[in-house]
Design a protein around this nucleic acid. Structure first.
Lengths: 343, 343
DNA sequence: ATGAAAGCGCTAACAA
DNA sequence: TTGTTAGCGCTTTCAT
């Protein structure tokens, strides 16, 4: 590897002159600058960031800590972040936790050792106390999920409202046996979504037993299949189903297709997220659309501002974007009852 | 940030003793080791990798350079790599090129400055000469696409054979007007796939004008929609269509759904890749299944071996996994002609 | 306009 | 068993 010293020796000048020339220092003559740059490029010199960091320069790496990049939810976020970060000269480090707090901890240790400039994290349900400590030493930002111990900087969607609207839609269609299938309550998002589901039932004047909530691993397609199979076999099977995660939605759609369940005839379904393919599933999936792209972009911009400006831009910040219900063909009035329209 | 020196001062010992204790050096007494580790953890010490790198340690970062992480093709690869790398203590850096050679170059410059331990790259059509030079200085590996200037280490699928089989399937069904929609010929994969398409036509005894190839940006859903719309409007519209990229497939499926084209009645379709949702599109999409997961895993293991063992493990290596045709409902004999079966 | 020297945090050769 | 010292590549005083 070529160093500034190699260049200096080649040109018979000192390393500091080389350093200054490459940094375009005002005190160096144009001629020297030119010769230095010339030789540097000839010799294939590439500055050593590790050395710069030792002199106090900060890393240009920002880490994204998420459960699983295969979830298109997260890959959209990763893309948006990567794009915005790259535009400002930052690189993106990808750390997958698989929703395991120990894996999360190991990653954070590594990121910390690498002195990353910032961290954007979708935390696991209950982060390890060492993780909390590690994060305190680096500018960070929570995404989607929000854990109080990790600070007050957070970007996410209004999960409660999203589920409330979705459920309210089913209530308005006359359904009285509505099931919800979502992530565990210990996940902040899981709790929020469940709460929105329940709120809508209550506002619709439905008794508590009208709603049936089935919670489980949020990123398990398999669990989605299992759960919906179980639901449909119950004596008083629900006539409508709201989902609370993308992966669960994928599983449910697969299973409903496989079993040949008539949607919305036998069952009305509201999905979560809007993946490619949701629009062409059966009659078209009515689903909760999430503004993840916008969320990721503003999150990136916020962190960038924090990194480039005075680091004292540290006040609490919280952004909530609302989801929107995308109406397609998978929901209908219960038992062929037609909603009253002005005629 | 806590340094070894801080620990040393606190304990009234020398930095080298601290360093050795943390490195579990045999010459340090168990008692000292214990006290050092104790204080280190108390003080929240995290080793500085930049400093270690200056002492000759290698980075624990491996970079993945791909066009776009949103393509589930690549996110699957990223996941598989990340998993395998993390298991060996490596972190994954994500660099998106958007298939732009200048963006690719910028990323490689950064990666080089960061002295990453290795690079796994899906190169752009014609990488910049500086990119080539930069890559020569770091252990690297090409994925899927293969550019001669970037060395002979490559992992990928047999694109030609995959398209040949897919096309042959349509030929066997009696189609004589078959269109292919794929990426540009300047991309190695584009050329291979097109060649497989043509080979199948020839082997099927079809005249050259039986096949119609439409090439364009491979990761543009939009282009897929446009292209298929154009194809269907032609006077002698094809009766069958083979796709050569996931994104194009997504676009085509959307457009066919939107236009209400009868598949396989009016048009037989063979997709590329097997995304979630392809199985429930219309009659189920017959498609080319790719063993990306296995490919990514073996690619990760190979690079790891290269990084951990003697770096002289540098011989040419090439792995080709074959794709497999997944038969579902979107292909049928042309014009209702039934293929002869033994009755 | 340029050079010499110190030091960032760590490890390893050399002493004791 | 522990301490001292040098040096990785770079930037930044302080000198010239």
């Amino acid at each position: 590897m070529i160093t500034t010293r190699d260049i200096a020796e080649r040109l018979g000048i000192s390393v500091s002159t080389v350093g200054r020339a490459l940094a375009d220092d005002a005190r160096i003559s144009e001629e020297t600058k030119f010769r230095v740059r010339q030789t540097a490029s000839e010799m294939g010199y590439v500055g050593n960031r590790a050395a710069r960091m030792m002199r106090g320069a900060s890393s240009n790496v920002v880490a994204l800590v998420i459960p699983d990049i295969r979830n298109s939810f997260y890959s959209t976020i990763a893309h948006e972040l990567s794009k915005n970060m790259a535009a400002e000269g930052f690189q993106l480090m990808l750390s997958e936790t698989d929703d395991d707090r120990m894996v999360e901890l190991r990653h954070l240790r590594e990121l910390s050792a690498n002195r990353v400039a910032g961290v954007i994290i979708v935390p696991t349900a209950r982060p390890h106390s060492e993780s909390v400590k590690l994060l305190r030493a680096v500018p960070h930002l929570q995404l989607l999920r929000r854990h109080p111990s990790l600070g007050s900087q957070w970007f996410g969607v209004d999960d409660r409202e999203a589920l409330r609207r979705a459920t309210a839609h089913l209530v308005a269609l006359g359904h009285t046996r509505i099931a919800y299938l979502g992530g565990p309550e210990e996940l902040p998002t899981g709790a929020e979504r469940l709460s929105g589901f329940r709120a809508a039932l209550e506002e619709g004047g439905l008794a508590d037993d009208a709603g049936r909530a089935e919670l489980g691993p949020p990123s398990s397609v398999h669990h989605g299949r299992e759960a919906v199979r179980r639901l449909l076999q119950e004596p008083a099977a629900p006539t409508a189903l709201v989902l609370g995660s993308i992966q669960l939605t994928l599983g449910v759609l697969e299973e409903l297709s496989a079993q040949g369940v008539k949607v919305p005839g036998e069952l009305s379904v509201v999905g979560f997220g809007d993946e490619p393919g949701f629009s062409w599933w059966g009659p078209g999936l009515t689903t909760i659309g999430l503004p993840i792209q916008e969320m990721a972009t503003s999150c990136a911009l916020w962190l960038l501002r924090r990194l480039k400006n005075e680091p004292e831009n540290d006040g609490p910040y919280t952004s909530v974007s609302p989801g929107s219900l995308i109406l397609r063909g998978s929901t209908a009035p219960v038992d062929g009852k037609v909603p009253s329209k002005p005629s």
